[in-house]
Each structure stands twice: as C-alpha cells, then as structure tokens.
Amino acid sequence: MEKKLQQLKEQALKEIKNIKDSGALEDFKKQYLGRKGELTQLLKEVKNLAVEEKPKIGKLANEVKEELADIFSKAEATLKGVKNSTHDFDPSMPGQSRPIGSIHPLTTIKYEIEDIFAQMGFAVYDGPQLESDFYNFTTLNTPADHPARDTQDTFWLEGGLLLRSQTSNLQVRMLERHGVPFRGIFPGRVFRNESTDVSHDHTFYQLEGLMVDKDINIGNLISVMKSMLSAVFKREVDVRLRPGFFPFVEPGFEMDIKCLICGGKGCPVCKQSGWLELMPCGMVHPEVLKFGNIDPNEYSGFAFGLGLTRLVMMKYRIDDIRLLESGDLRFLKQF
C-alpha cells in the first residue's frame, strides 16, 4: 500500500511536467484527484487495512493527496499566466505620450531654497519691483552721489522711481512692517541697465535674506549660510569670508564657497584659487536698522544676497543666461 502511494506520487509528478494546456491539466485532475481518480481509489482501500497500519498509511495518503493538490494548483496558476501573456500587441512599443508641462528651473531652485530656509524659521516675503530711490538706496545707507551706486546701473523711471537693482529693497520695508525679531527671505527679480552676453542679463534673480535678533554675530551668519549651502548642494560645503564693501552692511563680506569641482585644489573653474565667489553678505548696518525703527544698540543682524540665477546656472550647467528668459520651449521642456 505504502509502495503504491509512492509510485502514484512519482508518476503524477512526472506527468505534470509534460502538461502544456488546460485540457491535459483537467485530465490530470480527474485521473489523480477526481472522485474516481486513482488516489481516491487507493484511499478507499485504507479502511481495509490492519488496525495498526491504518494511522500510518492514512497519514501518508493524506500527505500525498495534499502534495498532488499543491502541484496541481501551481501548474494551474502557471498555465493561467501563460494564457494571460498571449496577447495581440507588442508591449515594447513606446508608451503613449501623456501631455506634461514643465516648471521653470528658477522656480524649482527658488522653492528648494525657500523650503530649506523655512526649516530654519525664515518666512518668505515678496515686495515691489518698481521701487523708490528711498527703499532701493537711501534706507540702505546709500545716499545720492554715493559711488556704490555706480556699481549698479539702475533703470530709472519717471518721477524718481526705478526698477529695483537688488532684492535688498525689502530689508527696511519688512522691518517696518514686521519688526523684530525678524527672520525672512525675499526671492525675486532685479534689474541692471547693462548690455547682455552669455553671463550677463539685465533681468536676473536674487534671494535676499535678513535675520535680526538679539546678539546675532558673524559666526551665526557663516553657520546659517553653510547649513543652507550644504542642503542645496547635498553635501558638506566649506565657505570663507573676506572683506567686501556694501553700504548697508558693516562689516561687509564676500562669501566664497570652496570649489565644488576640484575640492579646493585649484582648477580652471575656480581660476586655480580653490574658491568661488558666491554672495555678498554682512552684518546689518545700524543706519538700516534705524530706518526700520529698530534700536541698533539692542538688536543686530545679518543680511545676504544669494544669486539665484547663478545658482541655477551652476546647478544645471547652463552656459547662456539669456536662455532663462527666452521662453524657448526647447529649453524649458528639459526641466
């Protein structure tokens, strides 16, 4: 009896390997597992066995039955699968195009940086682009005849108004409105009346940052900038400060970033210096705070002006700044 069961099992296992269609599988089921099938017949004989053999053979018979049922269902699943894959089209054909638009790279980078600053508690503010001399220059400690005005070729409009030459125009506006402590960034476009080439445009984007609180120091400025840049470039970056003059900060700095290409060893990108000039920054000038109705004896702060356009060009290796505002879809659809 035991032998018969084993033989039956082996025979079934052998047979099932050759089954290629559902008809044959159906026959297999009938032959082995069906009510009149061989296994059922064998099982019926169990009751005729000696009492002491019954449990052992019964157990074995059941095991065989389960095993056969199992290989049957597996074979059935395999066959079904094969059936499903018999289709009448070529799945390797290109996917049907679904229309999708694009987001301008300046927007993408702007949002990325906004989010980084938001995590450090900086709110995002916006303000006028058509600006007065007062907020673009005077409140920034740059009175008329100040040579620093030369470095910014301003578009002048009627009535002494102008197109802002820097996002710093919002420093005093925001201090006036929100007071201290203040933590904010102001991204936006700025304008310089100069001729254009692959690396200069009369319209470009900056992201100004301003933090005013009690006891803000230069070390804080370095640290916030380092944290932000490490998040932007997704790796630890090194920065350095060197003197730079901007009338609305004192002390004023140029912040350089250790060249990301050569790691500071010197390469053509950083002109062998190991450093790339990144952004002007500094400690907010007491005059600016006073214009914002803040007591400079009690509060101090830092400000910085990140060149968004430059960052976008660095990040995507864009070699012509004018593409950004060209509206050319061949360019824009890449983003």
């Binding site: 638009g101 301008h104 304008f191 505002e325 879809l329 824009l332």
Partner: peptide, 11 residues
C-alpha cells in the same frame, strides 16, 4: 496636470 510650461519673460 494641465501640461502648461512655465515661462519667465522680461518686465
């Protein structure tokens, strides 16, 4: 969702 391309133009 609407297959629009964002453009930036000059002022």
């Amino acid at each position: 969702a609407q297959a629009y391309n964002q453009v930036y133009t000059y002022p």
